[in-house]
Design a protein around this nucleic acid. Structure first.
Lengths: 377, 377
DNA sequence: TTCTTTTGGTAACGCGCGTTACTTCGAACG
DNA sequence: CGTTCGAAGTAACGCGCGTTACCAAAAGAA
């Protein structure tokens, strides 16, 4: 709780009470410094025109008839006075807020940030603001439904034009009811009731591309370090794995599939089990497909412990592209990336279509998981 | 760019054109479903009172005289109609927006998310909304000043009551001029002009606590894998290191300080240099203080390559607490954490004081960097 | 009984802006 | 010379709400 905050030795002056007084300095020098609270009426008065004229000029109205002369005069006045439009007032008058809301679990999120970034960038391009509301809260006792409802409620109070609902791992979710009042798109998750449009990673294609890469490198006996077999990610990735093998006329040996806890330790143990089951050349796999990068990290240790080299003796391929792991393991990990940024961006695009009343391409959109080649295959 | 979006096989129904029509259903059944666009006036009419009365009740006015009877009647009507206050209109009328803005580099940020989370949580507790604006943008050519100005400008258009400016690594920054129009607090950086209040990690105390831990474990000859010696983080941490040694009557041997690139590879090379400079027992350090976790990751490899055990032969301590590295290395890395969340939270608290006109405790507040004990010492 | 105070409200203004309907004026037209 | 018409601009309303000033009736006080 960061109690020990003390004055810094390095900062010479101690502007302690730096709070700005809220008093308005009515008419300062004619400096171009933006004065607080300059309104459209002020601009109008200073330019000697009506407020309406200013509004017309600033909103670039097509069929407004304003002479080029007054037009430039108004724009100059805007500059001089440092006028800045009031987004809230504009929203009130025009009945459109230019805001989207996103509710997501920030706390437990190594990935949420990527979704947010993708969405944020795209929203910025669409000249929209993205309001972020946490669906989990520090002082709440776990991620409770109450928080989510409150988050959606707060967002709706801000009159967001659309809602994004993002999960940090691919799964089915229940979205608060009030989300129905506004166009809503799910990201990295799907509606358990099947009503809302969603955007998810194409796990199956990802699994396929991973195993295809191993096959292409000449491996035919491939071990799989599996996640909890019930979650959508595991189902899809394993299915893709089977497809790739089948296309090469191979089958997945159930003996070579080991499920473990989705951690480095879990990966370590699973890798040990697979590696110790066979002798080299006598059925021992020459490649490991780890269904996430954390497990790949553990597998690395198991492999190195046995004096084996990556990728010469055993090739490893991961999933997720957890940057801080994959890019810093030695050798760097070849892995399949989860397209969080793209999903975030696509979410905003979909929302934009929806709010514009346009049809969307599909109820559930799947985004490719690209292979990231590094040095472990 | 996520081109291949195709209909999902798993989603049965194809609610393709799910766009909601914007037509208002004037008087639906008396269902309790929240009708879009219920206003305070609607509530007033339905409850048979004036709009003022509703406003008084909803804002819990102290000295308003509303009988308990009408009060409950109003509240019931609010429930029934599903009235939801319009935050924008409220902001306009009350001249306070309840919004803070934060501008930060999301792109290049393994850490920015933590700052945001801390700030977000705290803002939520203060019943404030946090608007996030990116200071770097996907299509921009690098982090340019133009983007930052635009970000601040956009935030001010939203009439944020205060501004947070966050960097992802501790450094001096230049803040856009217009930030002066509103209370502003810097997080994980400081104003090059020395005007704005800031919140930074106490690097020196962090360096001290790290080395104290090593000393306590019986190490007296400690190697240091340094960052670029010029950045504030390196200066502070090294200073703390010297202090701890001095307190134990020791001095820092310049021979044992090696600077490297702030990556795993840089750490690997630096560690190799230190380890190969001496024989075991003949001056070779028994512990390494790595000034960040990525370098510690490389150091691990150098140590293991030489057949040495962590922490039995060589103890390692890191800095930053980059979760995905520190918590998954084997053995798990003891490190000093950068208090991003705390800094974010403290930033909002400071902003709250500032906007309330209260004095703040110090121009620059330093937040402790706690030691995280794991298994590498 | 008359005057004052309290209780329980309401009318009306303004926040900053988008938007529609209207006015004025000079030029072209018949 | 009267009429029409476009150009240039303005008055005024309303978005949803906070807030101040005011009012009517009931309850005490003198």
């Amino acid at each position: 709780m960061a109690k020990s905050t003390h004055a810094a030795a390095s900062a010479p002056a101690a502007h302690a009470a730096a709070a700005r007084p809220a008093t308005s300095a009515p008419a300062s020098t004619g400096a171009p410094a933006a004065q607080r609270g300059v309104t459209m009426a002020d601009v109008a008065k200073a330019a000697g025109v009506s407020r309406t004229a200013v509004s017309f000029v600033l909103s670039n109205r097509e069929n407004a008839s304003i002479s080029e002369e007054t037009r430039t005069r108004i724009l100059e006045t805007v500059q001089v006075l440092g006028y800045r439009p009031n987004a809230g007032a504009r929203a009130l008058a025009s009945q459109r807020s230019d805001w989207y809301g996103i509710v997501t679990e920030i706390v437990t999120a190594p990935f949420a940030v990527d979704i947010i970034k993708g969405a944020q960038d795209q929203a910025w391009l669409h000249r929209r603001f993205l309001l972020i509301a946490p669906s989990d809260q520090a002082d709440a006792t776990g991620p409770n439904q109450g928080m989510e409802d409150a988050a959606v409620e707060k967002l709706l109070e801000q009159r967001v034009e659309g809602l994004l609902y993002a999960a940090t791992y691919h799964r089915a979710v229940h979205v608060p009811k009030s989300a129905n009042e506004v166009p809503t798109v799910l990201i990295n998750c799907f509606d358990a009731d099947g009503k809302l449009p969603s955007i998810v990673p194409d796990e199956r294609a990802g699994g396929r591309v991973a195993v295809e890469r191993l096959l292409q490198a000449g491996h035919s006996r491939i071990g799989v370090i599996n996640l909890d077999p019930d979650i959508p990610a595991a189902v899809g990735r394993l299915e893709g794995c089977r497809e790739a093998l089948a296309a090469a006329g191979l089958e997945l040996d159930p003996e070579l599939v080991v499920s473990g806890h989705a951690t480095a330790d879990g990966g370590y143990e699973a890798a040990c089990e697979i590696l110790d089951k066979y002798q080299a050349g006598a059925g021992r796999p020459t490649a490991l497909f780890c269904l996430n990068d954390r497990m790949a990290m553990g597998a690395y240790d198991a492999i190195k412990e046995r004096g084996l080299a990556i990728p010469q003796d055993i090739a490893v391929i991961g999933f997720d592209n957890q940057e801080l792991i994959a890019a810093y393991l030695r050798p760097k990990l070849t892995t399949v990336a989860l397209p969080f940024e793209e999903m975030g961006a696509l979410g905003v695009q979909t929302l934009a279509s929806l709010t514009a009343g346009q049809p969307i391409t599909a109820h559930q959109q799947m985004v490719d998981c690209p292979l990231l080649e590094r040095y472990s295959v």
